[in-house]
Design a protein around this nucleic acid. Structure first.
Lengths: 214, 214
DNA sequence: ATGCTAATGCGACTCCAGTTGCATGAGTAT
DNA sequence: ATACTCATGCAACTGGAGTCGCATTAGCAT
């Protein structure tokens, strides 16, 4: 099948693949197709049935190519996570700490529970816990998100809503932990109420000075 | 007409649970040896290299027997978790909520970080996240522990340290979540300070009434 | 456009996890 | 103690994941 008159729309991908010597159109298209197929397979069949051959079949990329570039299914999941980490993220900025925390908690919760778009993130993180390599990628992803959210805390400190030496990382982890704990460790459903509860609990602890350093 | 067909069908579970028809000496010994070998392998080689054949070799139980009773390595991990859940657990009771929470958080933290005995629990839970079946066993384990700890909260309510309608489950999850989050999701080391912080944060939120129902 | 080379396609091959049918041994009932 | 049944040992077999050498295609430079 020839693509001579191709618009090479995929070549506008602002995220060139890893250390490829030839980051041109085909390589990028291959990566996009493979990640897409990986996520599809994850959502439809689950990690247990995620096989390199299935991804090869769905993506139209040959099995040997997948093994050469990603080695294993762990590599596929890791790369999908790294790509997710590259996506920009809009952190809430409502003008007040309480509403910011609430919005952030809701954002996290709906990101995984939204009936339309929640399946992929959920499947991806569940899958990430299934190998050391992908777990490392998950760690990178979560730390990246955390770093993007710290301004939220610093704004609150500047407004005088939080003690001077509040540890932004500790606060944000405290907010996210209960949600992730239930989603991926106990695998219980979470509700909007739980997200609000996490926001309120974090707010109470933070204003009490629990997250201040020294 | 075949009368025996219904009877035999009912009794022909290819993977009988531990309440076997013949729970006598050998079966129990086999299970103990296999779980022991599974934990050993998990700690020494990790889940990635946990293979049924390795457990068979270490336990001295034949490979086919393992496949018959546990099906896969997931089953081995699940059974190890179920056995862990059967172990009794001593919940702190120091006479005060603050010290109870602190002791509980420390107990959880040291349970995974103690250089002598922390490796097995850590390896076991990490492994449990690697299959749906074992994750279900982990859920059972965590919910069981939770249920055992609720009296701690009820004692505090009786002492007047917490609001009347405080949700014990919500409070205890809030205490444990940050620790598990870091141990098994971001895979960061945890310290005694973090455990204290979790206890203090939970205390602040609980006394503020965040965990009250209705 | 031409040639060079990285990236991918292709199919056969290897190897080991997992299965199966039968033999043997341990537990239990009578 | 005897017989019966379930659990385990045993070894051959199967299937598919993963590998390899070579052919083909597409990116990039001149």
């Amino acid at each position: 099948m020839r693509l001579e008159s191709t618009l090479s729309a995929a070549s506008s991908d602002p995220h060139p693949p890893h250390g490829s010597v030839r980051p041109g159109g085909r390589t990028a298209r291959t990566r996009a197709a493979v990640i897409e197929a990986t996520l599809d397979e994850l959502v439809r069949r689950g990690y247990d049935d995620l096989t390199v051959e299935a991804v090869a079949a769905r993506s139209g990329v040959h099995k040997a190519t997948l093994y050469r570039r990603w080695s294993t299914v762990d590599g596929l999941v890791s790369d999908a996570l790294d790509q997710a980490a590259e996506q920009p993220w809009q952190v809430p900025d409502t003008g007040g700490l309480a509403s910011d925390l609430r919005a952030l908690a809701q954002q996290i919760a709906t990101g995984f529970t939204d009936p339309d778009h929640g399946a992929r993130p959920t499947a991806l993180i569940t899958a990430a816990l299934r190998s050391d390599q992908a777990a490392a990628a998950l760690g990178r992803f979560l730390r990246g998100r955390l770093a993007q959210a710290t301004p939220l805390v610093h704004r609150a400190i500047d407004r005088g809503e939080l003690p001077e030496h509040t540890d932004a990382d500790a606060l944000l982890r405290a907010l996210a932990a209960p949600l992730y704990y239930r989603l991926f460790l106990t695998r219980e459903p979470i509700s909007a109420d739980l997200a609000d509860q996490a926001a309120l609990a974090t707010l109470a602890a933070a204003t009490a000075g629990v997250f201040t350093t020294r």
